[in-house]
């Protein structure tokens, strides 16, 4: 019992998070602001093939920063460290499984309906009314 007592009354007992200054939080915050700016900038380029992948890469990087450092997942021990990571893995399984089904099978069952090309030839920029905007206040 004496050992446990010593362990738990020590400010660095195992259940405590590591003590470090607040500086790391400001660095993470600046990184998150910069990445938001980056996704805002690249998002408006509407890169035809790489746009979605780039947006998801940036969002995942931001999420990783929040989870690892703001939420201290990096410092968790044992099962606490594994639970959330497993959840993310299963989210990816659910997403890929569903998309695999939809992209390979649904097209044969449902005709893919898309907007007529005439309506899509002049994509508006952000803040503009649609090109054919019949209703504009």
């Amino acid at each position: 019992m004496a050992d446990i007592t010593k362990n738990v009354t020590d400010s660095h007992h195992p259940a405590d998070l590591e003590h470090h200054g607040a500086g790391a939080y400001y660095l993470v915050w600046i990184a998150l602001l910069a990445l938001t700016g980056l996704t805002w900038w690249t998002g408006q380029m509407h890169l035809p093939n790489f746009g979605l992948a780039l947006a998801l890469i940036i969002a995942t990087t931001k999420a990783a920063l929040v989870v690892l450092f703001f939420m201290h997942l990096w410092e968790q021990k044992g099962v606490n460290r594994v639970t959330f990571v497993c959840t993310i893995a299963f989210v990816i399984v659910m997403l890929l499984g569903t998309l695999g089904d939809v992209t390979t099978r649904l097209e044969t069952l449902l005709p893919k309906r898309e907007a007529p090309a005439s309506e899509l030839s002049h994509m508006p920029k952000h803040g503009e009314a649609p090109a054919h905007g019949a209703q504009h206040p």
Binding site: M94, L95, T98, P124
Partner: peptide, 26 residues
Amino acid sequence: LFVSYAVYRYLYPQTFALCSRHLDLS
């Protein structure tokens, strides 16, 4: 909800882009 989003964005890619540009980005 994100999976639903993925499915419908796959089905209507151009319409989703059009509608997205109708949101207030600022």
